[in-house]
């Protein structure tokens, strides 16, 4: 599903060139759950942004579901993104002015899904995430864990092929963090492909494979034993 070849990302600010990613060769198969770990500033989020088609690499190739997308324009990326990728962020990133229902509905609106089907799909995913009682609440009225559940629901609602999670538990206490991880794990077991950035060694255990980044390079890739018995 994902394959990168010699991926490079260089940030240029005034006179200094910073290399955020260097020679990244990574492939993720359909249905895989990959965790990306590494210290702050090692390039995890940059990698995730490129994988999520929010950003373009400076050099190298990126094949996403069979398309070479490294030179895609923003419009092309947006088009591919909305049909295939769901995001979960550390800081939830819900829109404060919209209710829980409306936040979850948003990706479907952008996909121009008809209103009847939209409603059905949103309620379906809300039911699954146990969010029905919170339907008309605004994000500010929810706990962190609940907000992240809404964010996951929103990432899921359009049934994307890939879910990208950028430290989804970073702003949560351990109880809520566990809950979110269980949710992701369950999605994975149902066949969703997940790439997750995390600091937590414990939560990386949920993934099949852990990729360690350091200074923009992939230093090691470990396969999680429990999936390979």
């Amino acid at each position: 599903m994902i394959q990168t070849k010699n991926l490079k990302k260089i940030y240029t600010t005034e006179e200094v060139e910073t290399s955020a990613l260097n020679q990244i060769n990574l492939s993720v198969k359909e249905g895989e759950f990959v965790a990306v770990m590494g210290p702050s500033g090692c390039g995890k989020s940059t990698l995730l942004n490129i994988l999520g088609l929010l950003d373009n690499p400076s050099e190298g190739e990126y094949h996403f579901v069979g398309h070479e997308v490294s030179k895609y324009s923003e419009r092309q990326r947006a088009h591919l993104r909305k049909a295939n990728i769901g995001f979960v962020f550390q800081s939830f990133n819900l829109i404060d002015e919209l209710t829980v229902f409306e936040n979850i509905e948003l990706p479907l609106l952008y996909l121009k899904v008809g209103s009847g089907e939209r409603k059905k799909k949103v309620l379906e995913v809300m039911e699954r995430m146990q969010l029905i009682p919170r339907k008309n609440h605004f994000p500010q009225q929810l706990s962190g864990g609940q907000q992240q559940r809404v964010a996951v629901a929103r990432a899921l609602v359009a049934r994307p092929k890939l879910i990208l999670a950028d430290e989804p538990t970073g702003n949560l206490d351990s109880a809520n963090g566990d809950e979110v991880m269980n949710l992701l794990s369950q999605l994975h077991s149902e066949g969703t492909t997940i790439v997750m950035v995390t600091h937590s060694p414990a939560y990386s255990e949920f993934a099949q494979r852990v990729v360690h980044l350091f200074d923009g390079h992939i230093v090691t890739e470990n396969f999680n034993q429990k999936f390979h018995v």
Partner: peptide, 11 residues
């Protein structure tokens, strides 16, 4: 909000 909308799929 703009960032979120874009990430979610708004052109």
């Amino acid at each position: 909000e703009i960032g979120i909308r874009k990430a979610i799929g708004s052109g």
